[in-house]
Design a protein around this nucleic acid. Sequence first.
DNA 1: GGCAATCTCGTGAAATTTTCCCGGCCTGCG
DNA 2: CGCAGGCCGGGAAAATTTCACGAGATTGCC
Lengths: 220, 220
Amino acid sequence: MSDAGWAILLVDDHAVVREGYRSVLQKQPGLRVVAEASDGAEAYRQFKAAKPDLVIMDLSMPGIGGIEAVRRIRQWDKAAKILVFTMHQNAGFAAQAIRAGARGYVTKTSPPETLVRAVMDVLAGKIAISPDIDHELALSRLAGESSAADVLTAREFEVLRLLLAERTTEEIAETLHVSPKTVANLHSLIKDKLGVGSDIELVRLALRQKILTEIDLGEA
Amino acid sequence: MSDAGWAILLVDDHAVVREGYRSVLQKQPGLRVVAEASDGAEAYRQFKAAKPDLVIMDLSMPGIGGIEAVRRIRQWDKAAKILVFTMHQNAGFAAQAIRAGARGYVTKTSPPETLVRAVMDVLAGKIAISPDIDHELALSRLAGESSAADVLTAREFEVLRLLLAERTTEEIAETLHVSPKTVANLHSLIKDKLGVGSDIELVRLALRQKILTEIDLGEA
DNA sequence: GGCAATCTCGTGAAATTTTCCCGGCCTGCG
DNA sequence: CGCAGGCCGGGAAAATTTCACGAGATTGCC
């Protein structure tokens, strides 16, 4: 901490949003925004140049994303304090961010006080997680958060993959040499096992668990 | 316009982001933020109460989304001036927003000057589209690219968005205040218009056209 | 080997959803 | 005004999903 207060680096690809952080933080004595960046690569350069006491980092940015930026900065400076501030109210993202080395995770839906509080906590060496994410993490822990690969049999998993890739139940039945009826039964059973009610949820689950990747969307 | 300047209503579900708009707009003489809202329903109420000269509206919000809020406000006041300000750098969303009655569409990646410029233009009665979206619209026009946003009506597009985001037909019916039957009918019609046979294909199409982003996969 | 558990595949019937066709209502337009 | 087109939802047929049940095959274990 320099004599002028804690030095902070802001990282977010939206200028107007950075303005928002800045406005909120400036009201806090002892905090000073010394640099800004609008993507992961620039964040890394700015960190090395400015050596801030704290980084406030958005996750969704063009080019190198926030998680990767956290990893790189932490690799360069093991003691770097990084607070992730993002719109993603998602325990998975939070887990990823913390695992990458972030010291805090606060969602943008939080009131400004929560952000300020988290900034102070992280500067003080604590880990700061906003209450909504805390709650979600607790829930997923309780639910046992089963991954598709865990609860499905090999056959079921195969059918799931084909459902996501092929078109109709009939086509899948054909490639597997079973009756369409069986595929329909498995389809139903899969949804049951994964605890989803609709195909749309099924696809979203698959995307989240990286069973289906965006790249796999082939054609146009 | 009152003697104190143009009255503006800010709508965004993130308090810190509203702080950003406010900070940028306050630097402009003749602009005055008179109200704020954090979701579509509240935006509608605030509009009726405050009768602002301009609304700055985010699109992705809990409950009633931004597009639907634009529709309702315009239904109540045909002359309402609404400027959409969103992270979605997507020509399809822009087309839908304009069709719903918005007078401008600016992305959050734009520098603050662009936002201010657009605010002034819309207040002056012009239509304001930020350059990046202009460019995308031009490209998709050149490519012939019949996107979902082209063939679907505003209502259908709204239902599509909710289908991708919410859970059950009933929940969607509730947020739109129509019968589940109507949602089911629209769901069917949408699949017909887009030429897909299953919900799984529907989701894949939406992903390809960036109506749903992989990042947007809420929950855990 | 014998046994239990599990997986696979299928049938059939009930429950639910999807789809199609309809009419009424409103709005914008020539 | 007449007309087209979007929006809302009812009704009924068609298709799909779900559930209960069972028969073979395979696996793991004592």
